[in-house]
Amino acid sequence: GSPGIQSFLPPGWEMRIAPNGRPFFIDHNTKTTTWEDPRLK
């Protein structure tokens, strides 16, 4: 199987799917959430 997208996120980050189907990202380091992919910064 191919590695999940989770493995490509920075340490402490998690990806979830919102009720509307959009992915969002949780930064457990700062306890914040964002719509922006942290890998694109």
Results as ranks from 00 to 15, higher is better:
G1K: 13
G1S: 13
S2F: 10
S2W: 07
S2Y: 09
S2I: 12
S2M: 14
P3Q: 13
P3F: 09
P3T: 14
P3V: 13
P3L: 14
G4I: 12
G4W: 01
G4T: 10
G4P: 14
G4V: 11
I5F: 12
I5D: 14
Q6A: 15
Q6K: 12
Q6F: 02
Q6I: 13
S7R: 10
F8N: 15
F8H: 15
F8L: 12
F8I: 14
F8V: 14
L9M: 10
L9D: 01
P10R: 05
P10G: 04
P10L: 06
P10D: 04
P11E: 11
P11W: 06
P11A: 10
P11R: 06
G12W: 04
G12N: 08
W13K: 00
W13F: 05
W13P: 00
E14H: 03
E14G: 03
M15R: 06
I17P: 02
I17F: 12
I17M: 10
A18G: 11
A18K: 04
A18W: 03
A18Q: 05
P19T: 10
P19V: 09
P19E: 10
P19M: 08
P19D: 08
N20V: 01
N20L: 02
N20E: 03
G21A: 02
G21L: 03
G21E: 04
G21Y: 01
G21T: 05
G21S: 03
R22G: 05
R22H: 10
P23V: 12
P23Q: 11
P23S: 08
F24W: 08
F24E: 11
F24G: 04
F24L: 12
F25N: 00
F25E: 01
F25Q: 00
I26G: 01
I26E: 06
D27Q: 03
D27I: 01
D27L: 01
D27K: 01
H28P: 05
H28M: 09
N29W: 08
T30K: 07
T30S: 09
T30L: 06
K31P: 04
K31D: 11
K31V: 06
K31R: 10
T32H: 08
T32V: 09
T32I: 09
T33C: 15
T33E: 08
T34L: 04
T34A: 04
T34M: 06
T34E: 02
W35D: 06
E36K: 09
E36H: 13
E36Y: 12
E36V: 10
E36G: 05
D37L: 02
D37M: 02
D37T: 01
D37V: 01
P38I: 03
P38Q: 02
R39V: 05
R39D: 02
R39F: 05
R39A: 05
R39I: 04
L40Q: 12
K41E: 13
K41I: 15
K41G: 15
